[in-house]
Design a binder for these strands. Structure first.
Lengths: 234, 234
DNA sequence: AAAAGTATTGCGGGAACCCGCAACGTTGTG
DNA sequence: CACAACGTTGCGGGTTCCCGCAATACTTTT
């Protein structure tokens, strides 16, 4: 079995490569890519059955890399290995996993045994394995409310800096509907409940989304590129 | 000599502890704190001459921890060891280094030899050592323009979501001056030059500042706490 | 099918924001 | 001192944003 490790942190890469060679004798060959772009190219060129993928990387983040890999080779087993339990990552991943595919999500703060277990379960056994800390992410948000997919889309557009009018055009909604979605977004993010002077809700929404880890820098970058591309080709 | 390592990533911590014990025989005792709060407490309680400090940590980030440590023990030598070359970090550090103190800033992507060199130079020899990648950060910004300290302060307030009026009050400026600073801020961040539909400049400014690494999540958190504290005690 | 609930849209107005114009103070240079 | 350069401040107006109110749709419940 061939496994590809996509990881830009030298210390983490060394550790995971060691772990694989020690604990998974079934793996006959490993390869190491040091960023998302490189990893994507290797994965498409070679014939890897399993991938360990870091999420936060330069050039191309793990989710974008995984999307193109899965779109060409949907049977590939991918174990995401990340420092952060961001809702943004989970949302990103859950939108790109192909049906019947094996994947997993393990935090880098997890113990070695947990990591090794996940390596075996996902790469060898083809199971789905997601840490419990991550699973309950959506629930604890604010007043137990999760962002609807539609609200999340608006949040992304807001985060890019688009105006209401532009968002309406993009999403094929009326101006007022966009503003309604923004209202419920503000509500769910808990904006307007602070004491002290009133705030600029738009900026505050982005601020809160970042601090609550509903968004992160990687998805901002992805959304930006997506927006640029779609704008140019239309 | 006693050295404290403040690092929440288990793999990085192990590596740096190994490196110290192998390469720096002068170090007789090492201690490991797993987050900023813990590290701060240990540093103030024990008598450490040198500290290796991660920047991105939960509970309390490295800069905030270093600030309180230096305010009580300004002679402490601190080597910052970070994944990211964010302008936000440099700004934060340069504002808290006490005069005549020894410190350094090394990226985690640096080679082992560079890291070991920095360990020796900063902790043992008391030199100042900053990687070259970091030093030129301020210059390449946009049209060769660096943010003035005053503009940076406004950017922070904007990022918190404060309104112009509130910012004016906080900084003891007139409303119009705040708006002028925002104008030059927009200019330096390159906002308003994009083609395509017009944008919400406020949100866009935050977005760009994050993507250009003028700001990052840690400074947002710090600014937030600072704002809350100052508001309550006034 | 009726009723109740929810999402979408329009209208309108007050507040905040963006910014050109012009007046004023400060600083520094010949 | 004069003059220029620059930061600060006020004024005014055009635009965007925030959001209550109310009229339709569309969905679910009874």
């Amino acid at each position: 079995m061939k496994v590809l490790v996509v990881e830009d942190d030298q210390y983490h890469a060394r550790y995971i490569l060691d772990a694989i060679s020690e604990e998974l004798p079934e793996v006959t060959e490993t390869m190491h890519a040091i960023n998302g772009l490189d990893g994507e190219a290797e994965a498409l060129a070679g014939s890897f059955e399993g991938i360990v993928m870091d999420l936060q990387m330069d050039l191309r983040n793990g989710i974008d890399a995984a999307r193109t890999i899965w779109s060409r080779k949907p049977e590939t087993r991918i174990l995401f290995w990340s420092n952060y339990a961001d809702e943004a990552y989970l949302r990103g991943i859950s939108r790109i996993v192909p049906p019947n595919s094996a994947y997993g999500y393990v935090l880098k703060t997890a113990s070695s045994s947990r990591l090794k277990l996940a390596l075996r379960a996902v790469l060898l056994e083809g199971q789905i394995m997601v840490g419990r800390e991550l699973d309950q992410l959506g629930r604890q948000n604010r007043r137990g409310s999760v962002l609807e997919e539609s609200e999340y889309a608006i949040l992304l557009d807001l985060a890019l800096g688009l105006q209401d009018k532009t968002i309406a055009k993009r999403q094929n909604l009326s101006l007022r509907t966009v503003q309604n979605r923004l209202l419920s977004l503000y509500d769910k993010l808990g904006i307007g409940e602070e004491d002290g002077p009133p705030l600029n809700k738009r900026v505050r929404a982005l601020n809160c989304a970042l601090r609550n880890k509903v968004l992160n820098l990687q998805v901002l970058e992805s959304a930006e590129m997506d927006y640029e591309n779609r704008r140019k080709t239309s």
